[in-house]
Amino acid sequence: MRLLKDALASKVMLVLTFFPGLVVFLIIIGLYLRGRPILAEKPLFSLLFSSSWAPGRGDFGFFPFIMGTLWVTAVALIVAVPISLLASIYLSEYAPRAVQEFIRPMIDLLAGLPSVIYGVWGVLLIVPLVARIAPFFGGTSSGYSILAGGLVLAIMIFPTIIYVSLEVISSIPYELREASLSLGATKWETVKHVVLKKGLQGIIAAIVLGLSRALGETMAVLMVVGNIPKVPQSVFDGGYPLPALIANNYGEMMSVPLYDSALMLAAGVLLVIVLVFNVLARIILVRVERRAG
């Protein structure tokens, strides 16, 4: 009886274990099937690179939204990468253990804050700030802009980049640092020439993971970015990233023909891009881990 129960449980669990892999496929297939009607009308290429967005007339050009996503993500990376990397080097190489233990839960918390909270905060603080500083750069801005979206997004991806690069850096053997230090190198020289070089691949993976997180982030960006369906010309312009487009139009999408298909296709495109980056980063990390172990 006990053995029967065990055998049964083993079978059930085995079936369940295929579930996560199955979900990945189901999501891709589901989005593809729903996106097919619009692909039947228009080639993917013209959808991706057309700037004309007028669902009522049947024009679905994703180009402004793709550019919006790229702009916001680029700003976020420019801000987040140096700060996150410097912070993770400090935490792994310089900070006393007490400081590390004090800061880790804070980064946990930063990762755990819901994106609407980031959004509300962005509206309260970042948007007015951007509106205030725009004139100094010879522009005017309502504040709801690429820059505001990028800044909020940068803070949101701090934890991802910091955690992954911390893990990578701490997998580098201490003896290697000792080898450099014993030659009379300073700590920073050791970091620059040895630690960063040894950990380069993993750090790239950390950045790519942060990038893919940024590409898909929706609510926080949506709330501060302005949602103007035009290709942005400067960081003070409003933009309209792809995830925001999907989220904003869920209400009306059932009433306009092909609209839902276009949005599901957009979600599919987003997913494919994010997945490619993610899988890439994971493969690098697995390789790094294997080499270290």
Binding site: E217, P243, M264, N278
Partner: peptide
């Protein structure tokens, strides 16, 4: 883990 929540929403 890397799939954006908006994609979960769409799915």
């Amino acid at each position: 883990w890397g799939v954006p929540s908006i994609v979960y929403g769409a799915f």
